[in-house]
Amino acid sequence: MTLVTIETSTSAAAVQPFPSRVAPLARRDARTEPRLVRGIIITLALTFLTVFVVLPLALVFLEAFSKGVGFYLKALADPEALAAIWLTLVTAAISVSLNLVFGVAAAWAIAKFEFRGKTLLITLIDLPFSVSPVISGLVFVLLFGAQGFFGPWLMAHGIHVLFALPAIVLATAFVTFPFVARELIPLMQEQGSQEEEAAISLGASGWRTFLLVTLPNVKWGLLYGVLLCNARAMGEFGAVSVVSGHIRGETNTMPLLVEILYNEYQLVGAFAIASLLAFLALVTLIVKTILEGHLDEGQPASDD
């Protein structure tokens, strides 16, 4: 841990242009810990993060390239891999769009109007976050499976929901349901409705008011929500695993393919796909950090 140097966070130890007549021992800052304690806390915290987060992440990329770039690219160009990538993109595109429309509508209804049961509605919107992914998949098996409520009827009419794209999209939409709404609701509540009321009183239609007044105000928050929604949609494993049926080349998304290849000891292939997903996660985090900067910037502006 030689990289760790310690400075105090308080201004008390700021620039000191004067030779101090006060013995350094006497500078007992009321708000910080002894140097040794600080060192121990930082070391523990960074070690923990390194072991649990940095190492696994590094391992994904190292394993993926363990047999060279050629092998890596070949693993990705495999038809099964390409099919999984395509399915993941399609699934994410559909479920994110659905939840985007829903999230904006829910945020408008909740943030701009007062009605009874609002707290309950917000709790219900958050519900999927506290449901195990496996259960999120299970509920659709119960609806559309062979022994499910609609399964037999659908099968009789030749409609494939379970073990096909529709169920994969539904399960993904279920687990990503809250992301956009929960980002937008507090943001729009905080901004109030004065600007919209002004626009309406100036004769703008509701739709134009939304496009020209509301949307520009919440665009960073909206992007933030979509970004997180997308990351989860592309990476969802449990829920999709339950409803996909694992049909090779057809109903395997990227995370599912990682599992299959890993279980078949095709480690380079598994980690190559995994590295794409890990890369997606890193990009998501970087964009997220940038968006957070924009969101903070927007803060004082919304005050006046």
Binding site: R21, A23, A26, R28, D29, A30
Partner: peptide, 24 residues
């Protein structure tokens, strides 16, 4: 009070150097 420390100078309580003591 001992919540900030001067860059130079002295503080004493009853002739006793207060800067040698922490706030508490």
């Amino acid at each position: 009070a001992g919540l900030d420390w001067p860059d130079a100078g002295e503080v004493s309580f009853d002739g006793e150097n207060a800067l040698a003591r922490g706030a508490g």
